[in-house]
Design a protein around this nucleic acid. Sequence first.
RNA 1: UACCCCGUGGUGUAAUGGUAGCACAACAGUUUUUGGUACUGUUUGUCUUGGUUCGAAUCCAGGCGGGGUAGCCA
Length: 562
Amino acid sequence: MGENENATKTDFIRSKITDDLKLGKYSGRVHTRFPPEPNGYLHIGHAKSICLNFGIAAEFTGLCNLRFDDTNPEKEDVEYVDSIKEDVKWLGFDWQERMFYASDYFDQLYEWAVQLINTEKAYICELKSEEFKGYRGTLTEPGKNSPHRNRSATENLELFSGMKAGKFEENRYVLRAKIDMSHPNLHMRDPVIYRIINASHHRTSSKWHIYPMYDYAHPLSDSIENITHSLCTLEFEIHRPLYDWFIHALELESRPQQTEFARLNLTYTIMSKRKLLELVTEKLVHGWDDPRMPTICGLRRRGYSPNSIRNFCDKIGITKFNSSTDIALLEHCVRDDLNTTSKRVMVVLHPLRVVIENYPENQVEELDAINNPEDESMGSRKVPFSKEIYIEQNDFLEDAPKKFFRLTPGKEVRLRYAYYITCTQVVKDEETGEIIELRCTYDPETRGGSSPDKRKVKGTLHWVSARQAVDAEVRVYDRLFTVEEPDAVKDDDGYEKFLNPASLEILTNCKAEPSLADASVGSRFQFERQGYFNVDPDSASSEQLVFNRTIALRDSWAKKNK
RNA sequence: UACCCCGUGGUGUAAUGGUAGCACAACAGUUUUUGGUACUGUUUGUCUUGGUUCGAAUCCAGGCGGGGUAGCCA
């Protein structure tokens, strides 16, 4: 499956581009951009946009730029720039030499603002922000012209260069576009295009005291970069007339067009940058890369592969309809990818000691185990077997129902790649009644897991030889929220009530097969019969290996027993 | 209640005036040395009312429902 290269995508944006190309627009060029603001970490919703923009560029033999929309120094930081670059790269996309910053264009943007002043399309306004609101009108009433609207170009120019030179305190003046104070679209009511900010910028430091607004900087940056199709999310739809207005007012040759699509919503998660930041700062999670976070770095640490995320982005489609994608689809995509790529291995999460009474005391056998039944080229490995092993606690039941295929007194099961065993005795703690050990016998004729008489054994258990076992910690994750739409709560910050208290369970007494002893950080495995796991970076500083559970295997037995 | 956008199974999407299809989910079964994978089957849909048309999910009009917009954020 994977890439689905022949499956031509036909969403409305690609259709539009195809039409544009037929009409000979942009002389056949397609050039997109991914324009994050460096004020937070990228999440799965950004991945949708990244896959769209870079994907379209690749499909139409065009280009896609990475551009940091860094017009607000108060919120932005290099920390975010670095993480964004890393995440886009990790997802598998390449901006080649085309990494830009809106701040690269501040000089040009300033010149163009001067041009707008000279053509009487912009003016300096000194309304206080309270007054400003009064003049703007409301959704249902038109606004009124600012008393400074007809200031002379000369005076405007003088004030604007004073603003630039840092002569004024913040909020004293703004530069506004002169459009129409009675326009039904509020964004067209003489919007602010420059404001005074006396903060240090992460790239231009103290060079500027004025910073352009998004609505002004974005279309012009697109135009400078010769972008043809500027793709953004639905909430910018109402900004489009402004986007076009600046490009026309400045009579620019390069005229990109903006098209909007619906952002990604995922069930059981939140996607707002503000709320994700809150989870981090209030220590409700352990950081931006907490494996429970929907951030790219969180998913990476959790064990998601870039391919699985790209496949997911292909499957969700692109529309203008506000929808909510079932997180089960994401989970399907990661299982689907990891099934074909990850090495099988045996790890016991909740160990129960089993002594095989008729097995020779000090004997150790090296048994063959297949690394991946989906991919023969991944070969096989040896797993040690001995008299004492661990199995999973829930693979034994003293009083088992009919459909229970696992170990129960008197019934035979298969140990994967090893032998058939039968439970003969249950050893319990005299005080608590807790099962502490099982006594079993094995059939020496069943080495490797099959018998000469072909007798049927329904259950197969994973196991680990006790003496060779490697100790491990396993972090088992569940969804972060208990409700499908934590974002939909009325009182805006009440979503914390819906945090899942069981979203992280730490198991510290796990037993892994010895081949895992030197597993490297980040490597992904399937723990047979349990799920997909990867090695957490904490392994480097921890006494024992630390694994994250990426996702459990589908489990029709557990489902039936709910 | 101003303007703009959007309504297709439970969910996400396709069909561009001509047989409503795919995926996920759910359910049932086959295979299986992972109760995994694979495979097969089943259930469920065009918001509504009119109109145009031989023919409408698609075009038109009204209604209903959802979303967006009043930062000197992006």
